[in-house]
Simulated assay, not measured.
Amino acid sequence: MSDNNHLCLLGLIFLSSLLTGVSGVDDAHVFISSGEDVRLPCNNALQDCTSTTWLYNRYSTFAELIRLGRKRKDTESHERLSLESDCSLNIRNISTEDSGSYICQQWTGEGGERLRPDARVYLHVLHVSSSHTEISSGLSVTLFCRLFSYTGVSCDDWIRSESIHLFWVNQAGVKSDSRYQISSSSDHCIISLNKTLLNEDHNREWRCEVTQRDQVKTSVTYTVKSSAEAGSTTSVIPVHSTHSQDPSTTNTHTIKEILTILKTAVFTAPTVILLQIICARRAGRKDSQQPGEIEINTII
């Protein structure tokens, strides 16, 4: 192959990569409330899950949960794990300790070769707690809402990279109320709601929501209920709400990124076609030249 044709091929490969805009397997983000069951997708799965290995990473150390399609019996979460036919990982009764990074790999066998790029899933667990287990009218109470994630990434980094935010909202879905004081922390993804309870707060709901790029992923609702045994004493009862999607398997590509890829395609596609025409014409002239002739490059 001539140098000109080689350059044309490299140009086509480069422009084609601009059109696709993606290489490898996208990371996924899954949001769940503590106490619920979750499914983690394996985006690099093969038809036969006997090649599938699942790893868990939270404190910069890896634990093997699934090896070549079989559960490891020496893990604490062994009884709560199961593997679906599409190689996705099911975890029952999620706790905050289950948050972190999960990696799905495909191997040819023990000591074999990796068949596909790793597929990573970040599991974020939403948990709400109260400063008091039993409360009464006039008592100052603080509700803590925290999102547990992979410890290797700070909350500020999640906000910048994935636009992840926490909000407290009332029964009407309003994010602010003059009666309540809301504070947050940049070190941990945590937001607290401080309030002094009134009599009319009985049966009132407060909901903590986690959003990613302005879409609600999961939430936990706290309701103040009257206690029959304690008379005027009330207790705060957590109620886990349903997910806004199935089940929070969000890839990192957003609508904005898709539009960017489409815009790139609109402007890049004509260039690809033009480069193909140039390569074809040069190849044709090269074949039609007689020995000793000099090729004259023209600008189209």
Rank of each mutant, 00 (worst) to 15 (best):
H29Q: 10
L40D: 06
K71Y: 04
F31V: 01
T61V: 11
T53S: 15
T52K: 09
T61R: 13
Y59W: 07
T61E: 14
P41R: 05
D48K: 06
A28H: 09
I32W: 05
V38H: 04
N43L: 10
R70N: 07
I66M: 09
E64G: 05
G35Q: 07
V25I: 15
N43H: 09
L40C: 01
G35D: 07
K71V: 09
D27I: 02
N44A: 01
I66C: 03
N43R: 14
L55W: 08
T50W: 00
R39W: 04
Y59M: 01
C49Q: 08
S23L: 09
R70Q: 12
G69L: 01
A63K: 08
V22D: 09
S23D: 01
N44D: 01
L40N: 09
S23V: 11
T20W: 09
I66V: 15
G69H: 06
V25G: 00
Y59A: 09
C42T: 10
S51T: 15
R72D: 11
P41T: 08
Q47P: 06
N43W: 00
F62K: 12
R72K: 13
L65V: 06
E36K: 15
F62P: 06
G24K: 05
S60R: 13
I66Y: 06
F31W: 07
P41K: 07
D37P: 11
T53R: 03
T52A: 14
L55P: 03
G35Y: 03
T50N: 14
L65F: 13
A45V: 05
I66F: 05
A28Q: 13
S33E: 15
A45R: 12
G35C: 12
R70W: 01
S60Q: 12
D48N: 15
E64S: 14
G21V: 08
L65R: 01
Y59T: 11
G24H: 01
L55R: 03
K71L: 10
T50I: 08
L55E: 12
L68T: 01
L18S: 06
L46Y: 04
I66H: 02
T20L: 10
S33P: 00
L18E: 10
G24T: 08
L68A: 02
L18A: 09
S33R: 15
G24S: 02
S34C: 06
T53I: 02
L18I: 13
L55D: 11
Y59C: 01
T61S: 15
A63F: 12
S60M: 10
L19A: 11
R58V: 04
G21H: 03
L65A: 02
R58G: 08
V25D: 02
N44S: 02
T50S: 14
T20Q: 11
D26V: 10
D48P: 00
R67P: 01
V25M: 03
G69M: 07
F31T: 00
L65Y: 14
S17E: 08
I32K: 03
P41N: 02
L68I: 01
E64A: 12
N44Y: 00
D48C: 07
N43F: 00
S17I: 14
R72I: 04
V38S: 04
L19P: 02
C42S: 15
G35M: 06
L68P: 02
R58Q: 14
L68M: 07
A63W: 10
Y56D: 13
